[in-house]
Structure formats: C-alpha cells, structure tokens
C-alpha cells in the first residue's frame, strides 16, 4: 500500500511539473501571439526587433518587469496590497489539476492517466477554485487606496459573479447527459460525438459567459482604459503587475480548456495523438479570444449587466429544461 502511494505521488509530481511548465510557456507564448495576431489584423507588424519576428519580446518584457521599481503607495494597505496578486495567481494556476489533456498510456507497467488527478467532482473543483480569484481582485481594488482601483475592483467582481452563475448553469446540460462531474468521464462520453452538436445553446451561453468571466474584450469594462486607467491594478508595478497579467492569461487557458473538455470532445480526434488534438483545440479557442478582441468594441457596463441577468440567465435555465425534456421524451 505504501509503495503504491509512493508511486502515485511520484507520477503525480512529474505530471504537475510538466503541466506547470507548459502552462507558463503557454502564457508567454499567448502574449506574443496576441500582440502579433492583433497587429496583423490591424495591418501592422507588431514586435519585430527582439529575436526572429519579435519572438523573444515576452522574455525581454519579463526581464524588464523583473528589474522595475516595486512601488507600494504610501497610503495603501500594505499586507492586502502584497497578498492580492498572490491571491489572484494561485487559484488561476491550481485549476489545471483536473483537466484531462490526453488518453491514458502505459509506461513500465504503470497505468498513467493524462490528467494530474481525476477527482469525481472535477468541474465543481474548477468552478470553486477559479472564483477564489475574485478575492484577489477585490483586495487589489480596495487596498490600493485609489479611486480608479476601487471602481475597477468592484465592477470586476460584480461582473465576474454575475457571469459565474451562467457559466455554472450552461455546463449543467452536459453534466445531465454524462451523469458525472469528473472531467475524464465527460471526455470519455464524447468519443462518438462532440457535446457541441447536442448542446449548441449551452456552448453559446458558456462561450459568452467565459469571455465575461475572464474580463476580456468585448467585456473588458473593468479595465476600460478610457474611464478607469487600468482598473484594479492601476497602482501595481513590477512583478506584482505581471502576476495579474499571468493570472488573466492562465484563466483564459482554463476556460478554454473547460470549453474543449465539455464541448469539443477533449482529446478525442482521429490519427494524431490525444495530446496534440487537445493542444490544437485549445489553441483554436485561445485564438478566438484574440479574434474577438480585435473585432468588437467594448460594451457599456449597464448593457453588460443587463445582458447577463436578463438574457443569459433565463436562457441558461431554458437550456436545462429543454435538455431535460428531450432526455425524458427520448427515454434517456
């Protein structure tokens, strides 16, 4: 028994090491891709100087941020101010624990699932942990002792909790059809057909809510430069600023990974290995974020809240009832 536990922990640690580093690299790559794709969509070149086509630009930016002066405003609440970026980044990185990224393999007689850990409440875990990040945003907004930060923090948290409701509701349709909260079970249930085909309305609601949840364009009101400077991280500089940045990109990867797992069949796909399929689908979702950002103008705050509470919420309840009705009529 002890040996079994030991082996389990060793395998888990290796997987954590790999996933953690892949996520870091993806965050860095995302920053480069976003700048490059946005630039080309606007008929510009984007970063070109540092490395081949600006490939080393994110690393140069990282080094620059590392050596920047770390300003803590005199009137800020020091402890909360320092804790806020930690509180935002840690939950964003913890959500990757339950995302399945490939089919199980056998090495040296050990059966290895391509997921850090397959807990039976997987999606609940992700929703619970990712909403912890809101505390960090509220703390940042409050502790900065800056009016823009406070407004940005409050707006952000109100937006995130509103759209969290619809995220939760939009996924219920899939859970009803699968009968499990485990991410691995949900992927396995889609070996024949993607849930996207069976839950089109659920996917649309999820996609809109997910974009609002991670504060991305066209729902990036908390960071509206024209009215709020930089929102809740106005007063942050140096690595603390980059931690908010990292958390935002990590959250984007998380919601995209949930979309892939729930609606695009996870790692299932012909010919290529599962991991490659998963990364391809994930990249497609992330590209969607950038595409939307360079296409749509920003909404007004009241429009955003109306949309969430008056359209998406009833629509997601309707989706649950319709799914239930069809399942009952077709005899499950």
């Amino acid at each position: 028994m002890d040996k079994e536990l030991f082996v389990f922990l060793i395998i888990a640690s290796v997987k954590i090491f790999i996933v953690f580093n892949v996520v870091q690299v993806m965050v860095i790559a995302m920053i480069w891709f976003e700048r490059k794709i946005m630039a080309h969509m606007q008929v510009r070149l984007g970063p070109m100087r540092v490395g081949f086509h600006g490939l080393l630009q994110p690393i140069a930016d990282g080094i620059k941020l590392l050596f920047k002066e770390d300003i803590i405003p005199a009137k800020a609440e020091k402890i909360l101010f320092v804790l806020a970026p930690v509180m935002t980044l840690v939950p964003a990185l913890c959500t990757f624990a339950v995302i399945p990224f490939g089919e199980a393999i056998n090495i040296f007689g050990y059966h290895i699932d391509m997921v850090i850990t397959d807990i039976n409440v997987g999606i609940l875990y992700i929703l619970a942990v990712s909403s912890m990040g809101i505390y960090g945003i509220v703390m940042a907004g409050w502790s900065s002792n800056n009016k823009y930060s406070l407004l940005g923090g409050i707006r952000s948290s109100a937006q995130m909790i509103s759209y969290e409701l619809t995220i939760g509701l939009s996924l219920i349709g899939v859970i009803m059809m699968t009968g499990s909260l485990s991410m691995v079970d949900i992927v396995n249930a889609q070996s024949k057909m993607w849930n996207l085909v069976l839950q089109p309305l659920g996917f649309i609601i999820y996609a809109i809510s997910a974009i609002a949840e991670v504060n991305r364009c066209p729902f990036d009101i908390p960071e509206a430069e024209t009215e709020l400077v930089a929102g809740y991280h106005t007063e942050y500089s140096s690595m603390k600023f980059s931690m908010f940045f990292m958390a935002e990109y990590a959250n984007m990867i998380t919601v995209s990974a949930i979309a892939v797992t729930f609606f695009f069949g996870g790692w299932h796909g012909p010919y290529l290995p599962g991991v490659v399929w998963f990364m391809l689908k994930l990249s497609f979702c992330l590209f969607g974020f950038i595409w939307l950002r360079s296409t749509f103008p920003r909404l007004r705050y009241d429009q955003l809240m109306h949309f969430g509470w008056k359209i998406l919420l009833p629509l997601s309840l309707f989706n649950i009832l319709i799914t239930g009705l069809i399942m009952v009529v077709r005899g499950l």
Binding site: L9, S13, F20, L66, P85, V86, I119, S238, M239, K240
Partner: peptide, 30 residues
C-alpha cells in the same frame, strides 16, 4: 488520495507566486 496532487500543485503555485513577489522586491531598485 486523489486530492494529494492538488495539495502539491497548490504549494508549488503558492511558492511560485511568493517567489515572484519577493524577487522584484530584491532585484528592483528603490
């Protein structure tokens, strides 16, 4: 037992975040 890896990941993420906070405190000029 399946929750142990989450605990490991949590401590790694926490360590990473705290290192980030500390490193700019040390490297950045004041």
């Amino acid at each position: 037992i399946h929750y142990l890896p989450i605990l490991i990941l949590f401590f790694i993420a926490l360590g990473f975040a705290l290192t980030n906070v500390g490193i700019s405190e040390i490297l950045g000029r004041k």
